[in-house]
Design a protein around this nucleic acid. Sequence first.
DNA 1: GTGGGCATCATCCGATCGGCTACTCCGGTG
DNA 2: CACCGGAGTAGCCGATCGGATGATGCCCAC
Lengths: 217, 217
Amino acid sequence: MTDTPTGQPVRVVLVDDHPVVRAGLRALLGGQDDLAVVGEAGDLDTAERVVRAEHPHVVLMDLSLGDGPGGAETTARLLALPDPPHVLVLTTYDTEADILRALEAGAVGYLLKDAPPEQLFAGIRATARGETVLAASVAARLVRRASSPGPVVTEREVEVLELLARGLGNREMARELFVSEATVKSHLSHVYAKLGVDTRAGAVAAAIERRIIRSGG
Amino acid sequence: MTDTPTGQPVRVVLVDDHPVVRAGLRALLGGQDDLAVVGEAGDLDTAERVVRAEHPHVVLMDLSLGDGPGGAETTARLLALPDPPHVLVLTTYDTEADILRALEAGAVGYLLKDAPPEQLFAGIRATARGETVLAASVAARLVRRASSPGPVVTEREVEVLELLARGLGNREMARELFVSEATVKSHLSHVYAKLGVDTRAGAVAAAIERRIIRSGG
DNA sequence: GTGGGCATCATCCGATCGGCTACTCCGGTG
DNA sequence: CACCGGAGTAGCCGATCGGATGATGCCCAC
């Protein structure tokens, strides 16, 4: 509703591997007097360089950045720079793991790409002021999560889940991980408990849904 | 490389549920003299109305249109209109099932959102001429697929896969589907063969990857 | 009008899974 | 130093799975 009282526009850097999306954000933000896009990047390295050079107030970041390092890692890297920007995550997905990783990495906001432009503008202004901005559905997920114990799967368990998704049997997993079959079964039991399932198929589905493992693509 | 010899610009309608993406495409296409965005839509109904009114040469469509009807269905609906446009699918995903559905629905092109703008422009011009345009990775998938027998999973088999992803046992699936356990096992065997796996966990992963079933979110 | 694909059902049987209990190492933390 | 959690290991055993084989009814296409 209201505008920012400062005379200086909010300096924004766009980080997204989709040229189309970058152009879209540029076009949208260009219509706002108090928002200025001072740079953009399609990958982590470029992002780091641009942020270092431009010292933006806000970085608008797409989480599904390429296939390499996740947006969460990128966020962390940018926040480690001197005079770090506020990071506002703007993504297509609203999966729990994504949100948590981004917020844990230090992002102060999380909006979805299908958000109306006004919400986006307001989000950027709020982010520049250091406020936390969450899309409604994102907030809802966080609330829902706050009431449940965090299923923290260990690194090893993730490995087992990945092999599991490839359809390996316990014996094969054991060989692959250089451990005994008993150990694999042990990990599986723990995974089942943490994911709230009791079958391999259910574990794979749950793991993919919570983005503990990815399903290729 | 070359431009279209016609004096009339290519009339384009954008269909995408992300305002940001629509703005991006508008901005990008706006820089091309021979391309004119004559309308846009964020959902199926609007798309149908706009196409009916504007009679565009090309429809740029995002497959991941909302959570309702898929882009494939939307494509089919638009092609069913009088004087139908050429449909160029522009999406984030390059999953086999998506591509096939879109192409089967009648789309003549398939590009990814992370494509460079030049490729996008060329694709639109080619589409306007009725040519087929495929992103490199998409073409590769089709080639890879052509050599293998088409894994066309039946409706019933999808049901089994969905229950499988929920971690149900054969007995439970049988009860859920009002059939005998033997039938469930039969379906599973067929599914395994079609997906090229031999375990329930592998089947779930393969089914999610090929978007035969969704994993929530 | 016959073949093929789909859905259905049945039986057999070896292989695997999943739950249970119990133990050893190790690195952190109070 | 004692405690805890993660990782690794072991054996037992009933339940389940997966493969093989074979059969029936239906509907559609050639």
